[in-house]
Structure formats: C-alpha cells, structure tokens
Design a protein around this nucleic acid. Sequence first.
RNA 1: GGGGCGGUAGCUCAGCCGGUUAGAGUGCCGGUCUGUCACACCGGAGGUCGCGGGUUCAAAUCCCGUCCGCCCCGCCA
Length: 628
Amino acid sequence: MFRSTQGGTLGLEDAGTDVRLVGWAHRRRDLGGLIFVDLRDRSGKVQLSFGPDWTPPAVLLAARALSQEDVIQVQGLVEPRPAGNVNPEMATGQVEVHVVALELLSKSQTPPIPVAVSPGDELPAEDLRLRYRYLDLRREEMQRNLALRHKGAQVVRNYLSEQGFLEIETPLLTRRTPEGARDFLVPSRVHPGEFYALPQSPQIYKQLLMISGYDRYFQIARCLRDEDLRQDRQLEFTQIDAEMAFIAEEDVFRVGEGLMAALWKAVLDVELTLPFPRLTFRESMERYGTDKPDLRFGLEFQDLTELLQQADFRIFQDTTGTGRRIRGFRVPGGGAQLSRKDLDQLTEVAKAAGAAGALWVRRGPEGLAGTFAKGLDEGLTQRFLERTGLEVGDLFVAVVGYYRLAPLVPESQGGVSDAARLGGAEAALDALRRHLGDRLGLRPASRHAWAWITEFPLFDWDVEANRLVAAHHPFTMPLPADVPTLVRFTESGPPEGAAARELYDAGLRSRAYDAVYNGMEMASGSIRIHDQALQRHIFRAIGMSEEEAEQKFGWLLEAFRFGAPPHGGFAFGFDRLIMLLVGGQSLRDVIAFPKTTTARALFEGAPAPVEAQLLRDLHIAVAAAKGS
RNA sequence: GGGGCGGUAGCUCAGCCGGUUAGAGUGCCGGUCUGUCACACCGGAGGUCGCGGGUUCAAAUCCCGUCCGCCCCGCCA
C-alpha cells in the first residue's frame, strides 16, 4: 500500500494516528533544526514536520535535500500543531505529520513554470502553461476546475437519467453536412478520394434516434468545427445534447431549466427561480436590442420616433419617411451618477458598435440638459417626460438608425439597402445598455438571470448571395400560424427573385429557441419538422430542388418516410457552463488540453506534417506545404 | 483574411525619444537558523534582449520581414 489516506483530508480527529502519505513536495521551509514541507496531492495539502526529536538523522538529511515537485512517500504520526502555530488559512492547518520515514519516489528537476503559485501572483504566459500543461494542471485552481467539470457531468447524467433519458453515443467519423461551419475532414484509405467528416454536432443522429423510438436521448458530446478560435471558442468543444419525442416547447424548456437548476444547486448551492421567463425574439429585440439580453437589469428600450420627430432637432427630423427610428432608454439616477466624461464616452461606445453616435438628455432640477434638450419646447418636453417617466436625476440615451424589426420602407421610397438595414441600430443601443449596466454596477455575478428566447426567425437573408437561407437549420419547424404563408409562397416551386425577398420580409417565425444566461447564449434548439410535405416547402423556400435536397440530406429524408414522431431538443454548451460555474474567463481554463488561438496544441505539437508514405496511403497530395 | 497588444535571466516584469558592465522580484546553488507556513538573513551563479535583415560610429531601443502567444473583427446553421 502506497498510502493509508490522503494528506489533504487530515484534521484534528486524526491526531495520534500513524499515516503513510504520498504526494508532491509543494514548498519547503528549512529552519535549520526543523524542516517543514507542504505535501500536496489531489485532496489538498498537509504540513510535514521533520525534527530531531522524532525524525531519524538520515531522514532529516533526506528532507533537507528535497526540492519542489519531488514525488515522495512518508510515514509519521498526525499531531495537533503546538498552540500558536495553527494555520487557519489551510484546511489541514490544525495538524501536521511528524515524519519518521521518507522515500523519494521520483526526483523532479526544477520546474520551468511554478506549480506553487500564491494568490495574486501573475501566472506564466499562456503558451508556457500550454507547453507544460501537465505542470499547469497540478495547480490547485486547475484541479478545482476539472473536478468541478466532472461534478457537472455527473449532475447532467444523473438528472437526465432520472428524467428517463438514455445516453447514446454517436459516430465521430461521419458524413459532411453541407452548410454551417467548416468541417474537419478525414481521408478514407479504403476509398480513394473520399472523406469522412468529424461532426459539428450530433444533430442528424439524434433525429434518427427519435425516428428509431429512443424518445429521450442525451449525450455529453464532442463537437468539432474548423473555425477561428476565440476566448470562448475551441476547435473541439462539448455539448449537452438532448432530444425528445412527442413533446412541445414547454416540455423541452422544463427539462432544460430543470437541468440548469440541478447544476446551479449542486455546484454553487444557488436555487434558480423556475420557470425561466420566456421572451419572443421580437420582444427581446424590441426591448433589449439583442437576442441574448442580460436580464439582471432593466433599462428597456422605448420607441419615441413619432414623438421626437416633432422636435426642432435636425437628426430627429431627418428620420421622417426614411424608416430610421429613434429609440432609447431611461437610466434611473444615471444623470446624477454619471460625469460629463462618462456621457461623452457614450458616443464612443455607440460608434464602436456601428452607430453614428449616441444622443442623451438628463433631467436636473432646472429641467432637461443634453444633446437634444434644446430641440424640445415646453409642450414636447412635457410629453417626453410623460412617455419616458424621466425623473430628476435620470438620464435618457437614444440612438437613431435602422432597427431590424421596424416597419419597412423600400429603397425606392427613401429606405436603405439591406446591408445597412440588417446591420441594425439595436446593436449600438444594446452596447450602450450593457455599458451603462456595467458602469452602474447592475450586473453582479451573484445574480442569475436565465430566460428562454423563442420564435426565432425561420429565414435569414443572405445579403451577398441575395437569397433566402435557413436561420437555424432547414429541419426547424415553422410556427404553425406562419405555415399558411410559407405554403402560399412555395406551392408552385421555389419563390424566385422578388418573391423570395417578399417571403423573407413576411418575417416567418420558427419553433427555434435559445437559453440565455446573464446576456450569454448558453443553449439553442428547436422543434423539428416531422412532416415530409412541410419539409418540402422549406427546401423550396431556400431554393433547394428536390434533387439537391435528396443528394444532401437523402439519408435523413428517407428515414422520415417511415414514421417520424414529432420531436425537438436542445444543446447546451458544456464548456461554457463550467467556465461560468468556476467563475473563469477563458474556456482554456476548464479544458484539460486546449488549443491555442491559432489552433495549435503546444504540448504534443499538433498539427504536424506526416510521412510521405502515409499521405500516399491516403491518396493525398499536399499542394503547398510551408517550408518545403 | 484583417486589426490591436505582447515576446528581455527558469518564471513575472522594468529598461525602449539609440550611447559605460542590460536591472528588480521570485526561482535556482552555497551558507546561518528549532515553530515556519510566500520562513528570515548572508553570499553566488544565471542573458542568442523571439528569429532574420536593414539604418547607424554605436541597436534590447529605430525601420522592414518573419515566427509564436493573447484579444478583437470577419467566420462560428
């Protein structure tokens, strides 16, 4: 037996027991006569105490020669620390182990990056942390993160299992799905010139499982997308993927929010309020200017176009007949709390988000002051105050521009191009809202504002290709109320040119939804189409011929002909959830072996060139390799 | 594909409007020390200033290129 117990678990109740421990020498404090060594294992740290009264001379010598990260085995007596020498900072600080025997199991060179870092110390550069990942992962913070990740996975498995879900694995080597992200390809040796693709998600398989009658499926699934990386994006990431049959949105939401509540309870001991609020996409865009609103605070938007067009203020007047809108929000107390410098900064924030600027007024004891205050006469000021509820000390911030869901004004009648209109002024107003939320301390980490955003648009308009595309994916069920419109446009084949555009402008809604937490998208999903006739209309709408649909999705479409149940599901970003739960900033801190922002693995050195013979076996010729 | 920031001792950083021998903290090595816990104190070693080229009497410092890392835009149904 290497050890009788784990050092990090020791406490006063173990005093007097003889223990054998193994672990890493964390820090050594050599006082001459006495030597203290902190022994670290996964359970934590405990102080080893070497002294001439209880430690044999040879062992004292050996202890003196220990250096950091040596792997050792010790035997000794757990003793309460002498009065005045208790360390309250340490979980095991009441006790220490009086060592009588020491064995060096494995000597360590001086580590290139420190494992024993103190709070407040700068961590080594990230490339070094990744290059020596096995050392970085020894740090208590990383061990805590990965342990918490494990716990999260356990909660997910337990909760969904209790809800009747079966965990079923799906292939990693699969067929490329057109559309969506770039695929990772794997060449087939057996079939020259043909390729597998690594899955972007188990989407197709989970639908097949529904057709197969596994009416509640889940998987903690690895997903792979060959896109550029970000702080919150890795090439391979993990989703909690689930799908249910014979359900509607509310069933999916109940499972999803129940799962999150279980996670938050188990990990943070926080009781989430259920059910999560539901907000349609339209409501969310109108009230918060985004499809992922931070609902920890208000500052909801108001549309004041018609009112403010009457002001003697050029920017407002010029919106008449253009389709540009004047929207903004009241910031309670913002006028009193924000300095002139803060207010000037608002324009920078708006410009960074693509707007021409930000306009504001604040209400002081003597009335309104600010960028458009002079344009409001007495009567208009009165109506403005009534509409906005602006009180003394409050601020009102506005952005003028094209809002995505505003009534359309065609280009021929003074409106603007799609490029400008689809850009949306709500992005700027949203940026201002979040900026002011930060500035006024309205976004505390201790608040947990979840919501489901529903009725996402069924179609997007591809400005470059000038055509209609599926917003979520082409298997997303339209909202029943909008199906007649869809059918009308697609009865006699794909809508061409202007008709396609008209179909987009009709603003069809889908049964797709997202789960949003504190302004971050955490999950998305949809109710899928199980009716073949309806599916045909969707393909037509996005200009996909029956042959093309057959060629791209034939294997799935065929399955739908043999009795497909109504179904739908969700996928939560597992890495992101864990990142939030540990309070981290980077996905790399909750993934054991992540890639860098240039998609490299620094420890093992991937990607890397391979031998020419391997390429020949795979029927691959490299067109231009770097450095060759 | 584009933009920004960074790369100096094992690690974290200072030095950078050109000019003596490139510094600090920490780690490492040696020494003193019986209650430390980021032990303390004394001494010491440690540098391809990412790499390549250029300007200059002189380059860590200025210019060009390149590699690597981080952040952002594009991209990510």
